[in-house]
């Protein structure tokens, strides 16, 4: 008798608790999950976004179009995205970790330096793009200084390869400060006793880093890698401000392709197919990194 009533009560309690999740669930599911479903559905249609037109089922046409790329404008954008995601992630993390090691002690000088490294993050990526465009553009500040000094100008944004490198550089400039803060937080958790005893045992700075600090940072590295890759896969604002995809299509990445090309041309079916692929890639990549990092993190637990 008592057992039945407690089980009924716990079930009623769970139901009441379930009600508490309804508002969050409604907003989240309605505006993030349902759109993902819409994206999957539209990706199999030729929908052009006009309310009067009903989407017609075209099967895998949009995906085939992406795979075959008849106009030759989709594949370059994949390479641009991959270059930004891989090179950008490595540079952001290298810069962030290097500076975190330099700035790990909390002195007034270091505190100011941390703030200076971080501030680009409070500026919107679009404004960062416009600002660097005004500095590195053909008529920009740097080239005018070079010209004034009698030197030849540099094609930061005019040459396709330079433009991609410049874009990655600007992204790194704007993003590494965030990861720096995460690395600093991670370094706080590294046991100072362990580092000290390694030093007493005769390890030099490099050895202490390799055998004590770096393994203990493993969970932080996982977080920074995943967050950097996720944010770099979808960069759009900074591209729009800095290069607007140019010169030609040299800096058009996947997100630019979706928003400024397919969506702008009312090619909703194609835009949704591209969006579905990018969501899949983002998810797969995150889980791959998390899975690959698991072993390194187990090492961190053994040390910590």
């Amino acid at each position: 008798m008592t057992r039945i009533s407690t089980s009924w009560r716990s079930r009623a309690g769970a139901f009441a608790n379930g009600l508490l999740t309804v508002p969050a669930l409604a907003v989240y599911a309605g505006l993030l999950v349902v759109p993902v479903g819409f994206a999957v559905y539209y990706s199999f249609t030729d929908y052009n976004g006009f309310p009067s037109q009903t989407p017609t089922w075209v099967g895998l046409d949009n995906y085939e179009r992406i795979a075959q790329d008849p106009i030759g404008d989709l594949h370059p954008s994949i390479w641009v995205t991959v270059a930004i995601a891989i090179v950008g992630t490595l540079l952001v993390n290298a810069a962030a970790l290097g500076l975190a090691l330099l700035l790990r002690r909390t002195t007034p000088f270091n505190t100011v330096a941390r703030v200076v490294m971080f501030y680009p993050h409070v500026l919107s990526a679009l404004i960062v793009g416009f600002l660097w465009q005004a500095i590195l553009g053909p008529q920009g500040a740097v080239n005018n200084v070079l010209e004034g000094g009698g030197q030849s100008t540099l094609p930061f944004l005019a040459d396709p390869q330079w433009a991609l490198a410049t874009l990655i550089g600007v992204i790194v400039w704007a993003q590494f400060g965030v990861q720096l803060v995460l690395y600093l937080a991670g370094l706080q958790a590294v046991s100072p006793q362990l580092q000290e005893s390694a030093r007493i045992d005769g390890a030099n700075g490099g050895q202490v880093f390799r055998h004590v600090t770096w393994p203990a940072l493993a969970p932080t590295v996982t977080v920074t890698l995943v967050t950097t890759v996720l944010s770099l896969l979808k960069v759009y604002d900074v591209v729009l401000g800095l290069t607007n995809g140019g010169p030609g299509d040299a800096t058009q990445n996947w997100a630019y392709e979706i928003l400024a090309v397919s969506f702008a041309n009312n090619d909703i079916g194609l835009a949704c197919a591209q969006a579905v692929l990018l969501v899949l890639v983002a998810g797969l990549l995150s889980f791959t990194i998390i899975a690959l990092r698991r072993r390194a993190e187990e090492g961190a637990e053994a040390i910590g």
Partner: peptide, 26 residues
């Protein structure tokens, strides 16, 4: 409720501006 948490957490891996196009139709 554990599944529910996973369901919410999955949203962290969905790039917002990418899913904006279909969200407009919602």
């Amino acid at each position: 409720f554990r599944i529910l948490l996973m369901f919410f957490v999955a949203g962290m891996f969905v790039p917002a501006q990418i899913i904006l196009v279909p969200a407009i139709f919602v």
